[in-house]
């Protein structure tokens, strides 16, 4: 075993890259759930974003355009979930699972011509002075732009939910849609907007996977990342900054255990791999024992103005 061969600077740098797709998806899902909607279709929206982003980036040679297209495509796809659950009042769990299946099938259909192609990838940005700082520079300030966008998004969502009037309305809708409705807020419209935003974020996460992290298109490439994003929202007890911590923890532990293995450490790798899930369960136990779980009170409940 030779732990000195692990370079902490490179470890943190690859941890951030590794966690970014799930961070995007999780922060989007957090907003959706804060509005009282449980969308289990994150995996399907992510993979749709992955292929649409990849296809557009390859066609136009512009990764940024790929990201934009991915966000739009996944958001539009999520609207199908929105229409079904908000207007036609279908079951959210079943519809969300259906969305995942549709996304996986649709992406493999679109993806056939794009297998084995290399994509243009995002350049790492270089900020004068701070990117050149020793240790901190290569660790934090030499990433591609989307890593910073994901962090900014977390800050933005936090500020929006905590300080803005619209954020307050969104939370009200998620806590008690009947009360929000009685106050004259358009519950369905707010929820549709939240679903749209969540779809766009999942799309960005998927596109990050196919354009930066792997960078290629392979069928089924999200391989469960969407489900991890859902777990992170619970782990974070619906708080934005905890989503960031959760995503880096989940992403970081994967990277760390692979690095430990490469350094020759054998014992404990399995424990490390399962630890994020164990922690999630512990968090659930703790918050329910305290009685104050952070889940929005109307989460997953259908709303109709007549009820």
């Amino acid at each position: 075993m030779d732990l000195s061969s692990i370079n902490p600077v490179l470890l943190v740098a690859s941890l951030m890259v590794s966690a970014t797709p799930i961070l995007f998806a999780a922060i989007g899902e957090l907003v959706v759930e804060k509005a009282g909607v449980l969308n289990l279709g994150v995996e399907g929206m992510m993979i749709t974003g992955a292929i649409v982003g990849f296809a557009v980036a390859v066609t136009t040679s512009s990764p940024l355009l790929g990201f934009a297209a991915a966000a739009l495509a996944s958001a539009v796809l999520s609207l199908s979930f929105g229409v079904l659950t908000q207007y036609l009042l279908s079951n959210q769990v079943a519809t969300g699972l259906g969305l995942t299946l549709v996304g996986l099938g649709l992406s493999s259909l679109i993806g056939r011509p794009y297998e084995g192609i290399k994509s243009p990838t995002l350049p790492d940005i270089h900020i004068p002075v701070i990117s050149d700082l020793p240790v901190v520079g290569p660790m934090l300030f030499q990433h591609d732009i989307m890593v910073y966008v994901s962090i900014a998004l977390v800050a933005g969502v936090w500020g929006f939910l905590k300080y803005s009037r619209l954020g307050l309305i969104l939370r009200a809708v998620g806590e008690s849609h009947d009360a929000a409705h009685a106050l004259g807020y358009k519950v369905v419209r707010v929820r549709m907007a939240a679903i749209f935003f969540g779809g766009a974020c999942a799309g960005l996460g998927g596109a990050y996977l196919s354009l930066v992290r792997v960078p290629q298109w392979t069928e089924g490439m999200t391989a469960g990342a969407g489900w991890i994003a859902l777990a992170i929202v619970v782990f974070a007890s619906w708080r934005p900054w905890r989503v960031l911590i959760g995503a880096y923890l989940f992403g970081g532990i994967t990277v760390l255990q692979l690095n430990l293995q490469a350094a020759g450490l054998q014992f404990g790798v399995e424990y490390l791999s399962m630890s994020p899930y164990v922690i999630t369960i512990l968090v659930l136990v703790v918050i329910s024992a305290r009685g104050a779980h952070g889940a929005p009170a109307s989460l997953g409940r259908p709303f109709h103005a007549s009820s």
Partner: peptide, 9 residues
């Protein structure tokens, strides 16, 4: 990720 971990080392 596994490839990256090894390359980093």
């Amino acid at each position: 990720d596994a490839a990256r971990a090894m390359i980093d080392q």
